[in-house]
């Protein structure tokens, strides 16, 4: 049903015929609704895991004072959608703050695409994520999670301008709590990916 009230069941096993795992990453600032979105479309209750990473001062932009190794733990959550008997889509809710982006290659390489979740009250939380996705050439869309108590009601056009978002990047409204809305976000993203893939397959 289209409500966030029903919790999905705890981890149920995948079908034995499952053979291909796919990834979509939901990225955005703290509290923007990443976990909520993952939960609303996932067939399992979102699970949490973490990666412990050692950086030897590489992949660290602009901070030359970083010497030696630092160990960082990054937590992220994920949900799952079995698309058919063979293909299963994993959705990752990942932090978008600058200090987590060294993770991107390691964890999220091969991702189909990304959803950047935006809260218009804290729009600058998403700037960095958008920059990095463009830099990594990861296709993405921007979904505005409309909170009820948002005092401003910016139009999508205003938001596109504020984010300096090129025309080809899809920008849509969503309510992360509502399953059908979360589903629309994913469909819009994959539609976009499909167009890009078609265009690429046409060019020799």
């Amino acid at each position: 049903m289209d409500s966030a009230i029903s919790e999905p069941p705890s981890r149920t096993p995948l079908s034995d015929t499952a053979e291909t795992g796919l990834k979509i990453v939901v990225v955005g600032g703290f509290g923007v609704g990443k976990t909520t979105l993952v939960r609303s479309v996932s067939e399992i209750r979102p699970l949490n895991t973490e990666e412990v990473m050692t950086q030897a001062g590489v992949g660290v932009d602009e901070t030359s004072e970083v010497t030696g190794k630092t160990t960082t733990t990054v937590a992220f959550d994920f949900g799952r959608i079995s698309l058919n008997e063979r293909v299963v889509l994993y959705l990752f809710g990942a932090p978008g703050q600058e200090r987590f982006w060294f993770l991107w290659d390691r964890l999220f390489s091969g991702t189909l695409g990304a959803v950047v979740l935006v809260d218009t009250r804290r729009m600058d939380d998403s700037w960095y994520a958008i920059d990095r996705l463009e830099h990594h050439k990861t296709p993405f869309l921007v979904a505005v999670n409309r909170f009820d108590d948002d005092p401003f009601t910016h139009s999508l056009d205003e938001i596109r301008q504020a984010l300096a978002l090129p025309d080809h990047v899809p920008l849509i409204d969503c309510d992360a709590r509502v399953r059908s809305s979360g589903k629309d976000v994913l469909i819009t993203l994959v539609d976009h990916l499909y167009e890009l893939a078609m265009a690429q397959e046409m060019t020799p």
Binding site: T20, L22, L83, N84, V87, S109, G110, K137, Q200, E201
Partner: peptide, 29 residues
């Protein structure tokens, strides 16, 4: 181990047939 098909590199595009399958799956949710 059953490895993902579309995980070669960040920038590589999965083929349109796979994406069509994904779309179909999502629409049927």
């Amino acid at each position: 181990a059953r490895h993902p098909r579309a995980a070669d590199s960040v920038a590589s595009m999965p083929d349109s047939a796979l994406l069509k399958e994904v779309l179909h799956g999502l629409r049927n949710l």
